[in-house]
């Protein structure tokens, strides 16, 4: 299962690498004053931000709210967008900052897992029924275990493994070094593997 998840992450990373350039081009046009390009920026950026924010907050309502705020910040700051820059690390950084600010204001609302069902991975869609159920269960357990990790490790793991950012991009988003991100993501991976050992072990035995 860990192999399936890794493949899923890699597939998403590749897909995102393709769409990323489209988002950057659209953002570049928008920064140059092409108002119509905002739709393309929104379509490329907002769903990914939403998935990231939902995984971080565990709440659709919070994710919706922060996506709105982030897209509005991108709009108001469009004139500062550097030619040739990437929009996604910037968007993640803004969203992350807004979520942190929000969590400080509403500490009890954010970073809890109760209330809504955890996110299900898209990876289960193409799997056989038994595997899909197992994947969904594992995804839920993964979310629970992720929530137990220290914030720094969880943020690094999510940006690198879930969102497909490079170490350097994740480091820039988190305001730290690539080495620190690598270390945090690795520690998160080790912790998750230990916590989910039985599920991984069963998968390993299947292979």
């Amino acid at each position: 299962m860990i192999a399936a998840r890794t493949f899923h992450f890699d597939m998403h990373a590749s897909f995102r690498a393709v769409t990323q350039s489209a988002a950057d081009v659209a953002m570049d046009r928008y920064a140059n004053g092409d108002a119509g390009a905002f739709g393309a920026v929104y379509d490329a950026v907002a769903p990914r931000l939403h998935a990231y924010l939902r995984a971080r907050s565990g709440s659709d309502a919070i994710a919706d709210d922060v996506v709105q705020q982030t897209m509005l910040r991108i709009h108001t700051a469009r004139g500062s967008f550097q030619q040739g820059a990437q929009v996604m690390p910037w968007a993640y950084a803004i969203a992350r900052r807004l979520l942190v600010d929000r969590s400080r204001r509403h500490r009890r609302e954010v970073l809890t897992l109760d209330g809504e069902s955890p996110a299900e991975g898209a990876s289960s869609a193409d799997l056989p029924a038994d595997d899909a159920v197992h994947a969904a269960q594992l995804e839920r357990r993964l979310d629970v275990e992720l929530a137990r990790l220290p914030e720094a490790q969880r943020a690094a793991f999510e940006l690198v493994k879930r969102e497909g950012l490079s170490m350097a991009e994740a480091a820039a988003v988190l305001g730290t070094t690539a080495t620190a991100v690598k270390l945090r993501a690795h520690r998160a991976y080790v912790s998750l593997r230990a916590a989910l050992g039985s599920a991984f072990g069963a998968e390993g035995a299947d292979r």
Binding site: N32, G33, Y42, M71, L72, A77, R78, F81
Partner: peptide, 15 residues
């Protein structure tokens, strides 16, 4: 909601 807010909020282009 986002598009409505964007229409209501002016922002300067890069130039």
């Amino acid at each position: 909601l986002v598009f409505s807010a964007v229409r209501a909020t002016p922002s300067a282009s890069r130039r």
